[in-house]
Design a protein around this nucleic acid. Sequence first.
DNA 1: GATGAATGAGCGTTCATTCAT
DNA 2: AATGAATGAACGCTCATTCAT
Lengths: 203, 203, 203, 203
Amino acid sequence: MPKSTFYNLDQKKRDRIIEAAIDEFATNSFHKASITNIIKNAEIASGSFYQYFDGKEDLYIHLLDIIVERKLEYIDQVVMNNPNDLNFFNFLEKLYRGGIEFAKENPRLISIGKNLMNNNCEVCKKIREQQKPQSERFFKKILEQAIEAGDVKEEIDPELTAKFLTSINYSLSDFIYTEDGLNENVMDTINELIDIIENGIKN
Amino acid sequence: MPKSTFYNLDQKKRDRIIEAAIDEFATNSFHKASITNIIKNAEIASGSFYQYFDGKEDLYIHLLDIIVERKLEYIDQVVMNNPNDLNFFNFLEKLYRGGIEFAKENPRLISIGKNLMNNNCEVCKKIREQQKPQSERFFKKILEQAIEAGDVKEEIDPELTAKFLTSINYSLSDFIYTEDGLNENVMDTINELIDIIENGIKN
Amino acid sequence: MPKSTFYNLDQKKRDRIIEAAIDEFATNSFHKASITNIIKNAEIASGSFYQYFDGKEDLYIHLLDIIVERKLEYIDQVVMNNPNDLNFFNFLEKLYRGGIEFAKENPRLISIGKNLMNNNCEVCKKIREQQKPQSERFFKKILEQAIEAGDVKEEIDPELTAKFLTSINYSLSDFIYTEDGLNENVMDTINELIDIIENGIKN
Amino acid sequence: MPKSTFYNLDQKKRDRIIEAAIDEFATNSFHKASITNIIKNAEIASGSFYQYFDGKEDLYIHLLDIIVERKLEYIDQVVMNNPNDLNFFNFLEKLYRGGIEFAKENPRLISIGKNLMNNNCEVCKKIREQQKPQSERFFKKILEQAIEAGDVKEEIDPELTAKFLTSINYSLSDFIYTEDGLNENVMDTINELIDIIENGIKN
DNA sequence: GATGAATGAGCGTTCATTCAT
DNA sequence: AATGAATGAACGCTCATTCAT
């Protein structure tokens, strides 16, 4: 958690620091990411950094909080436009679509997230243990609701399928880029994907 | 590429170096992985290391070559046992099963692979750009064969579905561990997974 | 010397600062003692500190003045109760006894004093050069009086013996703690000590 | 404990490092002492230092070992010249004399020792707890022998008197310097001191 | 008089790599 | 071919002090 001094800073300076930090952690693993670099790019004094944050790990965790927060805004938009009569597969489509759009607009944040998920350093492991199950629980809950609503067949194992949907959700951002660069027809892709899943588990 | 001096070493010494390197890169990101540590654990002189390899990156690339080579042995076994009358979905099951088994028996190698895929450092990006399309091309080829053989319906986009199957293949190893530890029933999991896919794209 | 602003502070704030400073200098050498820490524990603004004192050294010297002042109160009590018919060795006993009691009740102040005596940093050396001779002069004076009064034999060298008595006085506080913790019978100890000295130099 | 690499160095370089370290620790408390400074004065690369020692604490402990070792040479000389028919007080005189001479010739080592005894930092406390009782035990042992031999009267408490003699031993070096500089007649001083003690505890 | 953000020199330490033997 | 000492840039971080408000 940043210290209160960080929140007392004017918006511009705070933004400069966060921007520099995102840049650095997006292009480097936790250990490679250099506080020295962030300080240089944010144009603050080295001592100042430690008046805002407890240290490298503190900044990193704050960055992850920001990512979750920003991603939730996308999900919220989906949920807002999701009247109860939408079925599970339409909901899933909106969710994945939101995820893709978020990834498209925030490639650096996605990069940080991916590094977190795959880096075996102690800090990353610790943070993962706190955060991992949340996404799976979310998918499990909406799957159970979908079974109850009759959208999804009863025989599937919600826990396993939740893992499956989570995994796809995580790797979705990989679909944005083809061998040759940005894939402009991602939305078609999503629809095909949903079709496959729908054929697999619909009631 | 290791220098010729490395291949002139006796097997035992070479093994010690590779073992130490796998250990180090399996538990640390490229940057955090310490040549100093590898040298210590392999019990060689620090100067010697630079007579075998050009540096850290050279060793890392060699390690990745070893991983690909070892994984191909598993796939080869599957292909060997794969008479032409096996249909696409049985083949896919064997492939994934082989992947899971490989992951189970070589957790350190999988760990290195995951790090490679998700680390945005220059070295990792460079290597990925060289290696990424290979797996997708493999799946695309067998998908096209499966369409021709009538196992898979014609309407699907082979390129997209190849990406999809590749992505699942990569994330498969995540299924080995549940929240509570080792998942003993992975094979059931695979079957459920294949069923979902089969329902989605079969002819 | 604290600035006048310090003396304009209300007693409570002044006490908080001195308390925090004593705590810090009692547990750390001059260099390790942290103004930052003192500021935090005294709950004042960092800028304020430099409106009260010229800096770390200024505060330290002020602390030493306080210690001397407080110790003199103990000695004063001894002197007050010291009618002229007390002989030198009774006086010495009272003096040492007072010292022990002071050390017992003010372990932090003693700790600061010991650090001052043994730290070779420039600040400490400078202060020592100003303060060291005072104690020796005190003992020399009362020794000369004791010789005149016939309590102590004429052959001893007052200057040397003053050094000797001063040195014992300084190290007296070490006797409070045995290897196994607090020594409950310190007063017996003192008496034995005085006996040894008395046998050594009495007339 | 220095690493083996340190002992592989040629004598000259080793001496330069130890000299620089003694200089630094003699004039600064443990925390103030700067490895950077030692490195600069010893004219070695910063990385080299950490190939010789595990770090600051390791070097400090090694320095203390050197001090003990060098001081024991003085004591050994005394013991060598100490035929059994020497009585306790002659022995004590030689011991103190040796101590004084050692302090005279090695003021920096004495300075380091004094700092160790009086610095409340964790490192110093830890080391003290391991080393403190040794000196007192030494004096207690020879006191008990002296009582048995009839040199010292039976009524004294050996433990207390050992503390007393140890304390004098420690503070002896303070006698070398008077207010006005080096005291040339230290040996007379010692004799007077021994006389006082002898009058106090002899049989 | 009070505040607390800003500063930057300095610290101990790590590490990939070089090079003389 | 083998050795291991030497190197020095870079790192995360601390701290006394300054200064604008």
